[in-house]
Design a protein around this nucleic acid. Sequence first.
DNA 1: GATTGGCACTCGCGTGCGGGGAGTGCTACC
DNA 2: GGTAGCACTCCCCGCACGCGAGTGCCAATC
Lengths: 340, 340
Amino acid sequence: MSEDRRLDVLRAIVEDYVATKEPVGSRALVERHSLGVSPATIRNDMAALEEGGYIAQPHTSAGRVPTDKGYRLFVDQLSTVKPLSSPERRAIGTFLETAQDLDDVVDRAVRLIAQLTQQVAVVQYPSLRRSALRHVELVPVGLRHLLVVLITDTGRVEQRTLELGTDLDESVVARLRTRLNVSAAGRRLSELPVALGELTDGFAPADQVLVNAVVAVVEETLAQESEERVVLAGTANLARVGSTDVRSIGPVLEALEEQVVLLRLFSEMAEDHAAVAVRIGRETQHDGLVETSFVTTGYGDEGGGSVARIGSIGPLRMDYPGTMSAVRAVARYLTRILAQ
Amino acid sequence: MSEDRRLDVLRAIVEDYVATKEPVGSRALVERHSLGVSPATIRNDMAALEEGGYIAQPHTSAGRVPTDKGYRLFVDQLSTVKPLSSPERRAIGTFLETAQDLDDVVDRAVRLIAQLTQQVAVVQYPSLRRSALRHVELVPVGLRHLLVVLITDTGRVEQRTLELGTDLDESVVARLRTRLNVSAAGRRLSELPVALGELTDGFAPADQVLVNAVVAVVEETLAQESEERVVLAGTANLARVGSTDVRSIGPVLEALEEQVVLLRLFSEMAEDHAAVAVRIGRETQHDGLVETSFVTTGYGDEGGGSVARIGSIGPLRMDYPGTMSAVRAVARYLTRILAQ
DNA sequence: GATTGGCACTCGCGTGCGGGGAGTGCTACC
DNA sequence: GGTAGCACTCCCCGCACGCGAGTGCCAATC
């Protein structure tokens, strides 16, 4: 029994099942693929594949369906990259280039992936932690409120309003602003707390309350991982006819609303930034997502600075090569755009 | 035939149908409500109500179900307000008060409504158009980029990056910053363009390029209605068992992803800011939402300034009184919090 | 005139049954 | 190892049937 052919059979099963959404039998397989052998032979191969846990039958006397393990093998070894058509590439480029600001770019990118993959697209906002601080701005608002604005080199802006116990002294604010920027300019956010610690020196004791409050806010903002926002698009694709079992979309929607879940997945998949990572079924480690797969890749690494991820969530029986190339293509354009 | 009792019957039908999710028959009606008459009498009333278009039967020999018109009458005349329990009120208050910033407040409010109503919650961000400008900040970013930050009195921050043809002159930026704030402070955004027009005077011709560019960006940002964002929560509630027909959630999700649709609805329902407005079924004027109702109210009107809406979308057979009071309660707290 | 009890009628829905078909596993053969 | 044949399993579909809920109508009653 040829080992190669067995893998061919697995590939054929995955492809047919993805295309038809129905369990695939031995006869259909030899008809649609030129395997050069008879159905009976295929049946033997299928028995072996089932033995190995790569395929399963929903019920006796039904065709075979790939298991998580089968999809995994397919993704790792059997699938070939499916390049996008050049009109598609062009559309991606122009669509992203005409965006207005960071929010707009991210929004368009995620819609684009939803559109291309016909699945749910997810994008993680550029992470504060890994990006560098470009500027800190302090803006007095009224007498007793101070707006703290942090600007990162990815163009992201974070703001916090600070309520003070005493009235503001504009000159102190100005001095603090200057010193903050001297300490902060170009630093990674993770390196900042150290630099900020020394800052209180050189201010009058009366003003140190203000200084400490501002420093605290800056640190707190940076520490706040919850600021790692994710944005979704294409949730309606979950309900498309022929998608996953319609009943199962409830848990999926719940999972998608839990930003924590998505952020955990993103971070777990971040090992190799540039590569396209895939989590299949139970590999997601989340009950609501056992019947889905998640395809992600990193974007925005140019200049070594900020890093985040973008991806697509779809049914187990998704078009893996297509999804992977769509995600990768959008991520590349996104990276290019963000580099300005 | 008593007109009053007929309305009682309609109310009972709506209440029972909402509670049981099943068409309600004449016998069940007399058993569950002390109407003091026999099923046969009820049947006569039901025939009249059907004649009037307030109820319908899914099929012959089934019970009755309210029509859009029936729900409308119920909402307008038959329902009584259902006040929230005091623990609920307290929970709302503390949950909203512990929020960090505007984004957080809005996010919590929308989750709260999703939780309370077990439906999809929608919130519209405070509108730029109607709020007043508090401060404009110009932040040089590198030599040739300028970040323009607009701060409104609702605590909202808008930013735009500006790419310049020439290098920045810090002193010109400082002067422009000052003058902008003099012109802008406390003005409504709609009144601004006039004030900005006169601003170019008093700058050297060489600097007018910069000034004009900044003014253009400010105006453009204000003009951009697309900045009216909406945020959702609780979409998973759409898929809860016993919710609407599970197949029909696809169109609903599509509609919800179209911010335009929601913004149109919000604006159409904004006539009476403080009141709770309801759109039932076809009244939404949107195909994807014919099987849903939308309950909204305004929030944030204190001081006469900014105004936006918050609401809940659920099946036609929703608990109208409960939804209405939940939406109103959250809106009130929200208004209070935003007033600081 | 409104209300009521009685009654025939209509359907939806669940159940059981049987046939057709797809697909498998096994075995004997090349 | 590959192939052909064959019995077997089980899903799915259509169908008939009966039950039950609910209605509409009518004649009787208050």
